[in-house]
Design a protein around this nucleic acid. Structure first.
Length: 643
DNA sequence: ACAAAGTGTTTTTTT
DNA sequence: AACACTTTGT
């Protein structure tokens, strides 16, 4: 994360860091690694690391990076490239490596798959083969299922008689990821008529969105395909990438799509040591195009050695035992993990609670959480409410019943204006504006907020390498804070509108400069969208707030019980997990894909570190859902009637 | 105007 | 499977 241009990075000056002999190297920041992790770490070839829930995948990768950099096995000026799917995961791994080996952090590039492929296209589009030359630039444009359906109908009509039936049978929701994404672009587009339906449809797709006149319309699958074509067609680029990145990490490998797999093979199939980390028991993205057996395919195609991590640093021994019952259904050869988590006494590790109404469920759980917090040092953020789908159906009842106890609920996927809450809370603009309000409300005691806000302001006003300008920004911030403070004191939240507050803020920071800054640094973010969402969130936060501190807490919702889907919960952990809605209405899809449904169940319940409570109702337990109850019974999970 | 029949959605990320 | 929403038929 610390390399400004990670594609062809400027190697940091070779510092006088002493190399550590391979046999003397010890992990930093943690006590020790398990034996299998040591073996995998020392294997400098292609490696597949199978790591179940709580195995410390990210930590393993951070330690492997430290090992390769500190021992000189990845010598200056070469880099390690770590590829993740989500920005959060990429940032998290980057931060961990920086913390472990700050002196080598400049040679560790952690980014998302899409950032890497888009970066290649953006820099080397001119090197694309003549048939694929991009003439008028492109814009990112994702298509809806309905639009893909219209496109397929259109081309099926115009298709040669022999292909018409087959083209019409492509499923709109699988076409881009499964068909376009699976198709390697030919360097030279053949002039003669295509013979099969796939080639015909894919060619029409590229024709309609890319090869026609005007600005190309690309989504991330198409960017991936262009990047793959680039490295395949331009051997010098391929060599440069392999030399720069002799070591590549890929996280969550079980979620790799066919497009991503083909890209990895083309770029890093040779002369590179690839480490793939994943857990096929947590493959829950099949419906979105993840390969059914990505890890196996990797082992085969990259001739990789497999290592299985068996320690679980997250969950108590009893919960590890429960997880193993489900793991065995997903993979009969699964090895039971060893819990390395601290044991907590005094509560049942897992139970199944039955309720007759949603109302009773929300009330009972809200009261229970409030009592548990009152009797312990836990905070609302230690609790998660997880469900299979339709999270917003749960939101109003739990919000109301937890509010009685002064506990907040956060649904990161909730719509705020035209954004999701998580996008709003992650954006730099929000950090700046909320930071200013925090500083004005609480001027002394928030040194990190002050630091963040002034750094952002320096960037917004272009003062980053200019000490005089930095000094001006610093003085400016002091004055801004004082003026905003006076304004806040004379305008309590209950008397003011969000529109006025945002106007006040934008007048202080120079809204025009901020707009230019957002456009220049994050082309994917729209300033008006963020400003609108910010205003909407602020409006609802100030409504019943007692004071500005309260309103800001409500806006950020940092200390809250989180409500999320099992899919979103992947990679996260909580002291206590409520897995809501173990019944047919939530799990209707179980019958059509039992393995993926079971994996979703596995992912959700393995988020719990110390306590797991599953909830259900009194509806029929026959049919596919019976499989889940059978596993719970086998694990000895007691059922409790809660009214 | 209203009911019946049909369609789409559910689980998501990426600049 | 179940719900929300749209189109078609009387």
């Amino acid at each position: 994360m610390s390399t400004p241009d990670p594609l062809i990075p400027m190697p940091p000056a070779p510092r006088r860091t002493t190399l550590i002999p391979v046999d003397d190297w010890r992990p930093a920041g943690i006590e020790d690694l398990e034996p299998a992790a040591w073996e995998a770490l020392r294997d400098v070839g292609n490696v597949a690391v199978v790591a179940g829930p709580g195995a410390g995948k990210t930590e393993f990768l951070a330690q492997r990076a430290a090992y390769l950099l500190q021992t000189g096995l990845c010598p200056w000026p070469q880099h390690i490239l770590a590829i993740s799917f989500k920005r959060d995961a990429a940032a998290n791994l980057g931060r961990r490596v920086t913390a472990r080996v700050p002196e080598h952090a400049g040679r560790f590039a952690s980014m998302t798959f899409d950032a890497f492929t888009k970066g290649l296209v953006d820099r080397f589009a001119l090197a694309l083969p003549p048939d694929w030359r991009m003439t008028d630039g492109y814009e990112i444009s994702t298509v809806t299922n309905a639009e893909v359906g219209d496109f397929l109908n259109g081309i099926a009509h115009a298709a040669p008689e022999a292909l018409r039936w087959e083209v019409a049978r492509f499923q709109p929701n699988r076409f881009v990821s499964g068909v376009v994404g699976n198709y390697d672009l030919p360097e030279v587009v053949p002039a003669d008529a295509e013979v099969d339906a796939i080639s015909y449809a894919v060619r029409e797709w590229w024709q309609a969105r890319y090869l026609r006149r005007g600005k190309a319309q690309l989504d991330f699958v198409m960017l991936n395909r262009l990047a793959e074509l680039l490295v395949r067609a331009v051997p010098r680029l391929r060599r440069a990438l392999r030399m720069t990145y002799p070591v590549v990490f890929v996280d969550e490998f079980q979620d790799t799509t066919s497009a991503q797999f083909s890209f990895l093979t083309s770029v890093f199939g040779e002369e590179t040591a690839v480490t793939a980390v994943g857990d096929s028991k947590q493959r829950i993205m099949g419906w979105a195009g993840a390969l059914p057996n990505a890890v196996q395919r990797f082992t085969h195609a990259f001739d990789a050695t497999t290592y299985s991590l068996a320690w679980n640093f997250r969950s108590s021994d009893a919960l590890v035992a429960l997880q193993h019952v489900i793991a065995r259904q997903l993979d009969p050869a699964a090895v039971r993990a060893t819990s390395k988590a601290t044991t907590e006494d005094g509560h049942d590790p897992a139970s199944l609670w039955t309720f007759s109404t949603d109302e009773a469920e929300a009330q009972f759980i809200a009261d229970w959480i409030a009592r548990d917090i009152a009797g312990s040092n836990r905070t609302p953020a230690d609790f998660a409410l997880i469900a299979r789908q339709k999270i917003k159906d749960f939101e109003p009842l739990f919000r109301a019943h937890l509010a009685v106890h002064g506990i907040r609920v956060r649904n990161d996927d909730a719509r705020v204006g035209k954004m999701t809450l998580q996008d709003l809370l992650k954006s730099e603009t929000t950090h700046l504006l909320i930071g200013l309000l925090r500083l004005a409300h609480e001027p002394h005691g928030l040194p990190t907020v002050w630091q963040d806000v002034s750094t952002t302001l320096e960037r917004v006003h272009g003062a980053i390498d200019d000490e005089v300008a930095q000094h001006r920004v610093g003085e400016n911030l002091t004055e801004m804070t004082l003026r905003l403070r006076a304004w806040l004191e004379s305008h309590p939240p209950s008397t003011v509108s969000a529109v006025d507050t945002v106007q006040q803020l934008l007048a202080l920071v120079d809204g025009a400069a901020l707009r230019r800054y957002v456009r220049a640094t994050t082309p994917g973010e729209d300033f008006d969208l963020i400003a609108g969402a910010f205003e909407a969130r602020l409006e609802s936060s100030i409504k019943q707030a007692a004071g500005w501190g309260d309103a800001l807490d409500e806006f950020e919702c940092a200390e809250a019980v989180v409500l999320l889907t099992a899919h979103r919960s992947k990679g996260l952990e909580y002291h206590t997990v409520f897995f809501l809605g173990i019944h047919d209405r939530q799990w209707w899809a179980l019958g059509s894909d039992l393995p993926e449904g079971t994996a979703t169940f596995f992912v959700g319940l393995s988020r719990a570190a110390h306590r797991l409570i599953l909830t259900t109702d009194r509806t029929n337990r026959a049919g596919p859902i019976a499989a889940l109850f059978t596993m719970l019974a086998e694990a000895g999970v007691p059922e409790i009637d809660c009214g």
